[in-house]
Design a protein around this nucleic acid. Sequence first.
DNA 1: GACACCTATGTAAACGTTTGCATCGCCGGA
DNA 2: TCCGGCGATGCAAACGTTTACATAGGTGTC
Lengths: 346, 346
Amino acid sequence: MITIREVARVAGVSVATASRALNDSSLVTRDTRTRVREAASRLDYSPHGAAQSLITSRTHTIGVLLPDLHGEFFSELIRGIDQTAQQGGFHCLVSSTRHRGPLLEAALRSMWGRVDGLVLMCPEFTREMSGRTLPGRFPVVLLNSPPSETDFDSLSVANYEGAYAMVRHLAGLGHRRIAMIRGANGNFDAAERLRGYRAALRDAGLPEAPELEVPGEFSEESGHAAVHHLLRLPSRPTAIFAANDSMAIGALSALRDAGLQVPADVALGGFDDIPMARYMTPALTSVRVDIAALGARAATRLLETLVSPAGPAPLPHPCRETLPTTLVVRRSSGAHSITTPRREAV
Amino acid sequence: MITIREVARVAGVSVATASRALNDSSLVTRDTRTRVREAASRLDYSPHGAAQSLITSRTHTIGVLLPDLHGEFFSELIRGIDQTAQQGGFHCLVSSTRHRGPLLEAALRSMWGRVDGLVLMCPEFTREMSGRTLPGRFPVVLLNSPPSETDFDSLSVANYEGAYAMVRHLAGLGHRRIAMIRGANGNFDAAERLRGYRAALRDAGLPEAPELEVPGEFSEESGHAAVHHLLRLPSRPTAIFAANDSMAIGALSALRDAGLQVPADVALGGFDDIPMARYMTPALTSVRVDIAALGARAATRLLETLVSPAGPAPLPHPCRETLPTTLVVRRSSGAHSITTPRREAV
DNA sequence: GACACCTATGTAAACGTTTGCATCGCCGGA
DNA sequence: TCCGGCGATGCAAACGTTTACATAGGTGTC
């Protein structure tokens, strides 16, 4: 292993000068700077990250703690975060598990001293969890987490507005019995989408119908099961809004199994607009979420507080932000006269 | 910030004893161990990662350097790596960019001192790149990289065998003119798949037909373009093998645009078996690659060398390994009598 | 020519942890 | 009683950096 001492020796200066030269300090003459630089590159020197972190107490790394997400979402989010982080000269330490209680704590602890800040996605996050684990004013940006529970900055997508737009769209097509396949229990996104659904029904003058709200768990299977349940109702819905696309896929196959046509017999809408949505037959009407942008924004927010001259200190009051969603209309909702996908901003 | 000194003070011992107690050294009495442990948990102490790394020169972190991958592949790979790493008590420092030449070097350098080993996926990796950048015997596992170019352990999927199985399958269905949409130039996976295609043609007694090998770049658009090119040939192919599923999707839409039926007019096969493959109409015959397993295996291999009692030293000669692929037959290849997907091991 | 000032460099302390070595008390054997 | 050995603990060095402070040389001013 080759250290800065070696570089200093070769360049014929002290370690201090070498360090300064490598860090572009204004205290070294141009001549010594180049001499040190040359020595460093000749020796293939790179500074030892841990040593730098120890003395400067900045790691230039952001931690990314995610639940065990499914494909597309996960990768897009990381892509957005990593790209922004790299531009700011930061690394990403990622970890993904089912973070319930103690596991989350363990994950957080083990990152301590290795990261300057955290992007934490935890739809079941509670203040209690943070209290013990997160040191006082550690910079954290929460993703898609319940707002009231915490003092941290947070970021989420316009779940409510997206769901509202979808249901309004369905109601606008004349549907009176619109069912919803709900997301996982205790999940913030799921709760918000449900709230949007209900509000849109109300605003459209449609009656509440609790039997049309069936549980789901964001998985294909649960979408499939939910449709089975719905089809057994005395009066079956004419439109179904699934709280995410995976469940919509499961719903579609269940409808097909039952010999029903989409959208002729039942209209269908999803949420997330995963890439697969446009390739299904019929193509799935969904609510588009720019996941990479969400990640990028989270990273930006974190970097802002990290490189602020005042040092890593969050804003006085926690700052919430919501990223817009877009309704993408395709064939599955039966907007008959429309052939090319139309987008409606929310 | 709360350090081990604090813990020691509270527990009424020296830092050395505190450290030993926290690290389960056999040199401390049971009584002091519990006393120290208690103090630590009362103070919410967690050891400072950087300091530990500096002294022990182990970071308990593995670096993951990937090209800018598309969705599913990326996330599955990370999932596999991270899961295995976590089980071994390791973190993952991931970075993803178009790593050509200097960028790759920069990425590698900046990880120096922050990771104990590296999972490096770089289909264009050359020995020259490694020579300067990677310190002598730094533990690295290469993913899907050209074999001869390097001294490092490497891991890849059975591209050759998978492609061979696909083309044999198509030939077995009676096709005589089987086209291939090639992958990106200079990409190792792409080259291997091409090799498998050619070998299968030869073994099936089919003539070489260079005009049936059209270039592609692993993107939907290039698949679309490739089909346009193929349809303009004097004698058009009856089957098309795309070097990955994305291109197969593009190809499918181009075929549909041209008014051709799949598989009636043209049979179609892909590679990777991304989740979307089974939801297309017709469902896509593809070659399944267990990406998460690939990642997990890579991590396992790396951890083995990292925790080996001999310390981090790679095996004397570089060790290659290939993960099996599976042919998944669906409707797009027109295996008429088969209704449920059949799997054929390779 | 003495003095202050500025600029470039060197010296050494610090970051938080682990660990080799010294120390100390205790026990058993002679 | 003395001594060797051993088990538990403390002391201090070390890891590779950065940086406050000291220092040395040069330059300008009186």
